[in-house]
Design a protein around this nucleic acid. Structure first.
Lengths: 143, 143
DNA sequence: AATATAAATGCAATTAGGTTGCAAATGTAG
DNA sequence: CTACATTTGCAACCTAATTGCATTTATATT
């Protein structure tokens, strides 16, 4: 998946600034989701903390990123699929949160349909599996 | 479901203190999960903030409560089913997080089995549906 | 290219959630 | 009823996140 920050910004009516481009580049670099603290560590010299928060919020609202909370309540961000929009996030895939390295993966597994009890109307469903990821599993088995 | 705090504490090798009993009582009062901030508001005069955190952590570890993170990364707590233990939490039901009143419900709906990609081993799976709950739905329709 | 203007940024200060260390208070086994 | 381990409360601290405001920057228009 090729990422073109400038195009993405234009498509979502966001001004093209170097901070915004940097954030998108950084998040697009890795296939796994990246946490706010990690982003801050990487971009802290170039971008102010507050600006980073504001950019991430803007991206989430516009449907550019989706936000995944890990078990500690830390925000993690990943690039949305192209079909996401302001109105609806289509990140209806399962997330995998490694309890060892803490990385969050977007799996290519759809969330099964869930039937809601009478009276409850779900607009989004979120599924996160916790366990040991591919990489950590290899490392632990002493390979 | 009848809750007997004193019994629960004994069963889990926790000393019987009035703070611990109060926390259990408060959480058992409502059928929906209660957030840390709410608990603090209700019990803040009787119990120190730090003590509350420690009690909640102890309860989670012992399998008395399970912790559910909402979309803002706030911790919410609900009483576990009797089969929960230190080793394994059996809260494998779907949670419903109302985006209006922010309450979290434990639904009587099991989480479907999810097949993991090769290399990924899941020990727990968490599913949360976001939308409008029973009560808020009634209120909004002007009943 | 110059400029007006609306939006984005950086900074300082603040709020809130959560943790740590330690002395005093409390529960419980003998 | 005593001794001891545990729990509690307090003060201090850390990190995540937010707000208000002055300054800077992007861009549409001339």
């Amino acid at each position: 998946m090729k990422i073109d920050p400038i195009h993405i910004l234009k498509d979502h009516d966001l001004k093209h600034t170097k901070q915004r481009v940097r954030v998108l580049e950084e998040i697009a670099m890795d296939s796994v989701a990246i946490s706010q603290p990690e982003l801050e560590k990487k971009l802290g010299k170039e971008i102010d903390r507050v600006t980073l928060y504001r950019i991430l919020n803007a991206y989430e609202e516009k449907g550019i990123l989706h936000k995944i909370m890990d078990m500690n309540g830390t925000a993690n961000y990943a690039i949305c699929s192209p079909s996401c929009s302001v109105d609806h996030h289509h990140d209806e895939h399962v997330h995998f949160n490694c309890t060892n390295c803490l990385k969050i993966y977007c799996l290519d597994v759809m969330i099964p349909k869930i039937k809601m009890p009478a009276g409850f109307t779900a607009s989004t469903v979120n599924t996160t599996a916790y366990g040991i990821c591919e990489k950590c599993s290899v490392l632990q088995s002493g390979n």
